[in-house]
């Protein structure tokens, strides 16, 4: 019930409003964001300054693309966040600035995400998503040597990972600001494991369409793809490979998450929070009886609960996929 309500809230987005982040956390991420954007502006200066109109329109494109959605299950809908797509289409540095503009506009025009929290929001959804999307996506595309499955796997993994990374960073900031790690991490990563699958599918299809129709536009994809083969996107084998790679990365992330949050940042808050996290573990785990791991406490328990949660997510996703496929196949037989 609680996790569901949380899920509904998180589903609406990762835009942290003001009031949630403690001042040191918000300011720390402002510094990180300013540093990343300064590097991006430096990289594009002179070389790409003429392309400012293009990048501005691309920001408007990402914003509009986030409006597009499709029904998933039970009244929820899948839609795009766009970080990985922005990194793979206009390039990583341009994509970073594009995403920063999108998130800043959402905060300024629609109060979607706070002003003090803007640094954290831009970092989570703009900087981290584009760096991860490009850093993971490009090597995979290159490793595939231009074969179409490279684009499919790379697009999916990059998009899924960028969403999970953004969710992880958002959770980390909330936990550092005093929210309970035992609630925030499982809830955020659980919900975004699904959202990431939608992101991955949309990103792959969008990349495939652009690569097929205008491969000249996209430096990352130019000349490395066979347009005909891309028409048959998303075969069953490719999807399975993607699922297993995703699972492996997810488990890795879950293992890292509490360790990263245990990493002292020099913020005295952290120590204080850890005091309460350990004490808070008991009541919080009562809420999530499935995650109760008797005899364990502290980071190890969070790690295990994270891994278990992810395994459950994947089992659920796989089961639902089988169900849908079964229903579809039986439907086809009866109509034949």
């Amino acid at each position: 019930m609680l996790v569901q309500a949380l899920g509904q809230a998180m589903l609406l987005g990762m835009h942290i409003p003001d009031g949630f982040l403690s001042a040191p956390v918000a300011l720390l991420w402002w510094v990180l964001t300013i540093a990343a954007l300064a590097v991006a502006v430096q990289r594009l200066r002179g070389f790409d300054e003429r392309r400012v109109p293009l990048m501005g329109v691309m920001a408007a494109f990402i914003f509009a693309a986030q409006m597009l959605n499709f029904p998933v299950l039970g009244g929820t809908s899948g839609h795009l966040l766009g970080g990985a797509l922005a990194a793979l289409l206009p390039g990583p540095w341009a994509g970073m600035l594009v995403m920063a503009c999108v998130i800043a506009l959402q905060a300024l025009l629609f109060q979607d995400g706070g002003l003090l929290a803007l640094g954290a929001n831009v970092f989570n959804m703009g900087v981290a998503t584009t760096l991860a999307g490009y850093g993971v996506g490009m090597p995979l595309i290159r490793a595939a040597g231009g074969r179409p499955w490279g684009l499919i796997v790379a697009g999916f993994v990059a998009a899924w990972l960028s969403v999970m990374l953004a969710a992880f960073l958002t959770s980390l900031q909330l936990v550092l600001s005093g929210l309970s790690a035992a609630v925030v991490f499982p809830a955020m990563l659980f919900v975004h494991a699904f959202i990431g699958v939608g992101e991955g599918l949309i990103t792959v299809a969008a990349l495939a369409l652009v690569a097929t129709t205008r491969p000249d536009l996209v430096p990352a994809l130019a000349g490395s793809l066979d347009a005909r083969a891309l028409g048959r996107a998303m075969s069953r084998g490719a999807m399975l490979t993607v699922t297993f790679i995703g699972l492996a990365i997810a488990v890795g992330l879950a293992l890292l998450s509490p360790l990263a949050s245990a990493d002292p940042d020099g913020l005295e808050r952290v120590a204080e929070d850890h005091g309460f996290i350990e004490r808070a573990l008991d009541p919080a785990y009562n809420l999530l009886p499935d995650y109760t791991i008797p005899g364990l406490n502290g980071p190890l328990s969070t790690v295990l609960s994270g891994v278990i949660g992810l395994l459950i997510v994947f089992a659920l996703a796989y089961g639902i996929m089988l169900l849908i496929r079964g229903r579809q196949e039986s439907g086809q037989e009866t109509t034949r």
């Binding site: 693309a65 597009l68 959605n69 499709f70 899948g78 839609h79 795009l80 797509l85 939608g198 599918l201 949309i202 990103t203 792959v204 299809a205 969008a206 990349l207 495939a208 369409l209 652009v210 129709t213 996107a233 998303m234």
Partner: peptide
């Protein structure tokens, strides 16, 4: 999702 991806593209 593929339809939507086409729209995004």
């Amino acid at each position: 999702a593929e339809v939507l991806g086409g729209m995004v593209g």
